[in-house]
Design a protein around this nucleic acid. Sequence first.
DNA 1: TGAACCTATGAACAACCATTCATATGAAAG
DNA 2: CTTTCATATGAATGGTTGTTCATAGGTTCA
Lengths: 108, 108
Amino acid sequence: MEVMESYSIDTLYDLSELYKVFGDSTRIRILAVLRGGPLCVYHLAEKLEMEQSAISHQLRILRNAGLVRAKRMGKTVSYTLDDAHVVQILDMGLAHILHGKGGEKDDA
Amino acid sequence: MEVMESYSIDTLYDLSELYKVFGDSTRIRILAVLRGGPLCVYHLAEKLEMEQSAISHQLRILRNAGLVRAKRMGKTVSYTLDDAHVVQILDMGLAHILHGKGGEKDDA
DNA sequence: TGAACCTATGAACAACCATTCATATGAAAG
DNA sequence: CTTTCATATGAATGGTTGTTCATAGGTTCA
């Protein structure tokens, strides 16, 4: 602390860890799909056209980050967005991308 | 599209790229410091106790993402947060971390 | 012009990560 | 119990990325 204005260095580390989870297109696509309602692993893999194993691995990361929740439904496991924050974070980023800003490539 | 509810796969890719930029503790700390006002590279490196080169490399990434803006001030280069969205995104993530949620480690 | 200072950049290296493949765990049906 | 379907997990691997080191670019002052 002392380094940051109002937040501890640990908090900022946690923050970067959170965004790291959002920083993968597969995971973002999973979240986007789940935004439309709960879905099981099989259907997620189907929609994203990826292997079930890859989806499962990413779902575990999303679970550990507290962004999605798993629930057994017989043979299948249904996944849901964990809370409203997830949607808010997604929308905030989308606002940044879709609206106004978009062409400030300083590029090396 | 067809895969996503309301957003194209390209948009979601861009979204993950945006969050990837936030997904590094050094960059998050830079943004947090800049939130307190403009600062030059030298002072950033000083505050974060990191080498100037490392900071410069990260600043370039932040610049290319449109999150910060550079401005020459004589010998030094002053950096500023580019727009309000950056602060909003930071706060949204902080809300997720600091408030309610915090202990949902499913862990392997 | 030359020295001193500040910043940017390229190359190299180590650490991290997403995917694949193979396989294990768990549930349901026969 | 055995088979089949659905999901999870471990190991291996190719690709990505953050940091360091060395150095180039640019600015000010003498």
